[in-house]
Amino acid sequence: MLLTFLVATALAVVRLRSLFAVVMLSGIYSLVTAGIFIALDAVDVAFTEAAVGAGIATMLMLGTLRLTGHRQVAPRHSPLLPLLVVTITGGVLLWGTRDMPRFGDPAAPVHHHVAPRYIEDSPTEVGVPNMVTSVLASYRGFDTLGETVVVFTAGVGVLALLGIGGRRRRDEGAEDTDDDGGTRPG
């Protein structure tokens, strides 16, 4: 049901030419994705997506629209070639699902490598009831460190591109560093 809604939103994004509506729809899209994440038991991911995807990303895009204008000109090229490329890629991906395990299958290989250890031992080894937190901060702490480096680099890149001077430009940079600090505990 939610997935159908998601598809409708995505199609509207393709059709619409008012960029303001497109950005708003992408916010809705993120929020629906967050709903699906909750249905799929990924509560931590859901609130990160709702805060970061639907909140900060939409704000950044609105800020950009303010600076770049919000009408898109009609596409001049024929859509046939992109459609062909996209259909072929999609077909290959569908072919790839042929030997994928059924959705929700407890015997799927993904559930039988390191995941059982995280589920069984992390409460005693780390002592945090939320397994996602203990994996994020302890077992895969280096990943998270790397992520911080990426976000920092992106923040530096934004500042370098837009220059430090100018009031509005500084706002754009500030939003970005805010997301750097704000999402760390998640």
Partner: peptide
Amino acid sequence: IVVGVATTAL
């Protein structure tokens, strides 16, 4: 997700 927003900002 967090890295994605960083790249979007860039």
